[in-house]
Design a protein around this nucleic acid. Sequence first.
DNA 1: GTATGCTTTCGGC
DNA 2: TTACGGCCGAAAGCATAC
Length: 366
Amino acid sequence: MVQSRVVMLIDFDYFFAQCEELRNPVIKNKPVVVGVYSGRTEDSGAVSTSNYIARKYGVKSGIPLFLAKRSLEGTDAVFLPVDHKYYTQISDNIMQILSVYASSLEQVSVDEAYLDVTVQVSGSFENACLYAQKIKQDIKTQVGLSLTIGVGPNKLVAKIACDSQKPDGLTIVKPEEAANFFAILPVNRLLGVGKKTFARMEQMGIKTIGDLAKFDIQRLVSMFGKVLGLYFHNAANAIDNEPVVFTGEAESISKINTLKQDTRDLESILQKTSELIDIIHNEVMEKGYSFKTISIYVVTVDLLSKSRSVTLEQPVKAKEIIKRHVCLLFEKYLSESSLDIRRVGVRVSGFSKEQLQQKQLSSFFG
DNA sequence: GTATGCTTTCGGC
DNA sequence: TTACGGCCGAAAGCATAC
């Protein structure tokens, strides 16, 4: 008999706010709101994360800071600006500790990682329960943070298990339970089922993952194509063979800022993007990347976003090339739109890294 | 038709 | 009544290639 894998998804609870509680435990029993301040006016900006006390007042990720402030009026709420460096340090520390617990670790974001622990728990989900508790305890003791863990036979199930109980949760879904666990969930909980596909599936009478699991596979293939159709069929039946693999470098590097004032003056836009490009270019050079694609990102006064990009024939690395293409892209964009611009951003992607490969080879031999 | 790759938009954190 | 960040990868939509 083929033994099931045992895969965990570990999610750090309300991460940024919990980091702030760690730094200053006095705030722990107060509403804590971590926000990005745009610098325009005193309260201009948005909530990045809040602790669960603040969430009781409806203060959650993405809402405007002044709204959060209003909702928390009369409480002893603490508002703090994001400190990415500090959170990344803590995250790196936790990832380092977690990596020892697994055969492979795949970091998904600053506060999430998949672990393949099949070997460590001898393929037993009973062992996995104890093992997960041990991991939680270890991070609590060594770092002082709480985590939520989902365990399943693959990444797909682990993820949905993890989402089902937070914070400080532990949910285990055994292989034989996965189908029932999935059946009642709305189909858009599956990766790959966005707004459009969700609407299409609804038309076909598919609302839950259970509906999708029972749906005729041939018809799925004829509707969505071979690759997607088979993927949907498998996913709905909780089948997922994606391995837990070490995550490589980021695929894009971007920087975005809010302008001091709304404008469509090319000079002032280029002045701001020039600052952003300096930072991006530094980072790209540090990593020894070349890049092929350069994009600009615009948020207009009505808060809608647009982007434009160009892909070059050859990978390049010069800062001047970014600046030149950013200028061209903005000239083009401005000729197409008449709205004032509130925020601007720059992104580079399509990396290649001959240098890095050389480095790896030489360090392998050296 | 299916695969592939590019551009733009969407949505989670 | 309006109000509102910064980043990333995935989704969606299209063009082109086989």
